[in-house]
Simulated assay, not measured.
Amino acid sequence: MAYTAHRPDTEPEVRDRTSQDDASIGELLSAVTSDAQKLFRQEVELAKAEIREEATKAGKAAGMYGGAGFAGYMTVLFASLALTFGLANVMDWGWAALIVTALWGVAAAVMYVMGRSRMKQVHPKPERTVQTLKEDAEWARHPTS
Rank of each mutant, 00 (worst) to 15 (best):
G63Y: 07
V122K: 13
E138D: 15
T18F: 13
A102R: 01
F70A: 11
Y73K: 06
A49D: 12
E138W: 09
T75H: 06
F78L: 13
Q121L: 14
V100S: 05
A88E: 00
E50T: 05
F70G: 03
P124C: 04
A109E: 07
T101K: 03
T56R: 13
A36S: 14
L103W: 00
Q42P: 00
E11L: 15
Q20R: 12
Q20I: 08
G69F: 09
H123D: 01
A97I: 04
L77E: 07
V110Q: 08
G72D: 12
S80M: 00
D22F: 10
T18G: 04
Y3S: 03
E27K: 03
L98W: 05
T10D: 05
V32A: 15
A108V: 07
P126R: 04
V100M: 01
R116F: 08
E127Q: 09
D92W: 00
R15F: 12
V110M: 08
L29P: 00
R41K: 11
T4W: 13
L39M: 06
R7I: 15
A62D: 10
E54C: 08
L28D: 05
A47W: 14
M111Y: 06
I99D: 09
A36P: 00
Y73W: 13
A2I: 08
D9V: 15
E43A: 08
L29A: 14
R15S: 04
S19R: 14
D35V: 11
T129N: 10
G67Y: 03
W139S: 12
K38H: 12
T101Y: 11
E54S: 08
L46F: 04
L87R: 00
T18V: 08
S19E: 15
E11S: 04
E27Y: 05
E53W: 13
W104T: 04
P8S: 09
R116K: 10
V130A: 06
T129G: 02
E11T: 13
V113M: 12
G115C: 01
R128D: 11
P126K: 09
E138F: 02
D92S: 14
G115L: 11
T56W: 07
L29T: 10
A2N: 14
H6Q: 06
S145A: 14
A109S: 05
S145D: 12
D16M: 08
D9A: 06
T33F: 02
G72Y: 08
I25K: 01
E43H: 12
W139C: 06
G63H: 06
I25D: 04
A36E: 09
E135Q: 15
G69Y: 12
G105P: 00
H123G: 01
G66R: 11
K48Y: 13
Q131H: 14
A49R: 15
A31N: 09
Q42S: 13
Y73R: 06
L81V: 02
A102Y: 05
R116Q: 11
D21A: 14
L87V: 01
T10M: 11
E43D: 14
H6A: 07
A97P: 04
A140T: 10
